[in-house]
Design a protein around this nucleic acid. Structure first.
Length: 272
DNA sequence: GTTAATACCTGTTCGC
DNA sequence: TGCGAACAGGTATTAA
């Protein structure tokens, strides 16, 4: 993607979670992608003129890369629509040279795209205030413990708060708390010291396993083109209500409760 | 200031 | 078979 020039942009609907501006396509066409990065759950495309494109996939969003056999450009109008039944939810299509298309597909439209300046990324309202990246070495037990100190909310809710740690979703929080043996109902402020270190280790392990497996795809997100992740086959507790505490001799059974309107799966015996 | 609840959206699943 | 309700997710907004 880096080094690719954006030769065309087709906006099919602007009313994503944040409406796309009128000049969205004009701001991108002709620009070259200087750097492709990520911050929390956002993809960050830095362009050669100082423009930055932020993209969030929400829960059902995907970026599909489509490399047609023909090598010509100007292909969007000719066959970008002829790509199966998921195309109805392709809200933005980018052409990046040689006829390669990048399709932003998001059936539930929880995703978003936004334009800003590269020098303003750190202070952009979507990125400012985000907590540390859980995959980076700087994310230690001490750092997490400090972020949780004084928080009078369940640890489950605290980990979903992107200001505490950036990039964890409901599934990975459930899995991490299970591995760490920490109850999702425990007061966040009480996760300190060795307990916080154990939780950081668990988060690292869960994320690494998920990345190696190619990510997760929920049962109701499976797309007809078959490009799905496989981490869901490795869920220990998520969506496993009623099964015996996995890989454990505690004798407990996975339970489902609702916290902050979200499902939490955990073993009440193992997780304290 | 902090925490909790709600709205947004739509495909899938479940129960009647 | 067909219908409606419930559910799933992340985050901004509103309420407490």
């Amino acid at each position: 993607m880096e080094g690719r020039r954006i030769t065309a942009v087709e906006v099919r609907r602007r009313d994503l979670r944040i409406p796309l501006p009128e000049d969205f396509a004009d701001a991108l066409v002709g620009r070259t992608v200087a750097r492709l990065g990520r911050r929390a759950k956002y993809l960050v495309f830095e362009l050669d003129d100082g423009t930055a494109l932020l993209a969030h996939l929400g829960m059902s969003g995907r970026m599909l890369i489509d490399q047609p056999k023909t090598g010509d450009s100007g292909v969007i109008g000719r066959y970008a629509h002829a790509t199966g039944d998921g195309a109805a939810h392709e809200h933005v299509v980018f052409e990046v040279g040689n006829g390669t298309l990048i399709r932003f597909r998001d059936p539930r439209r929880f995703g978003l795209m936004a334009l800003t300046r590269t020098e303003d990324l750190a202070t952009h309202k979507l990125l400012a205030g985000l907590g540390p990246e859980p995959t980076e070495a700087a994310f230690t037990g001490e750092v997490l413990a400090r972020a949780l100190a004084g928080k009078r909310t369940p640890i489950k809710a605290a980990l979903l708060d992107q200001r505490v740690v950036a990039g964890l979703g409901n599934i990975y929080v459930c899995e991490s708390l299970f591995l760490a043996g920490i109850s999702p109902r425990r007061l966040a402020a009480s996760v300190q010291g060795k307990r916080a270190a154990r939780l950081v280790d668990a988060i690292h392990r869960v994320l690494n396993e998920a990345i190696e497996a190619g990510g997760s795809t929920l049962r109701d997100h499976v797309a007809p083109d078959g490009e799905i992740g496989y981490f869901q086959h490795s869920f220990r507790v998520y969506d496993r209500e009623g099964v015996k505490c996995p890989g454990c001799t505690c004798g407990g059974v996975v339970r489902r409760i609702v916290q902050s309107g979200r499902s939490t799966f955990f073993c009440p015996t193992r997780q304290r």
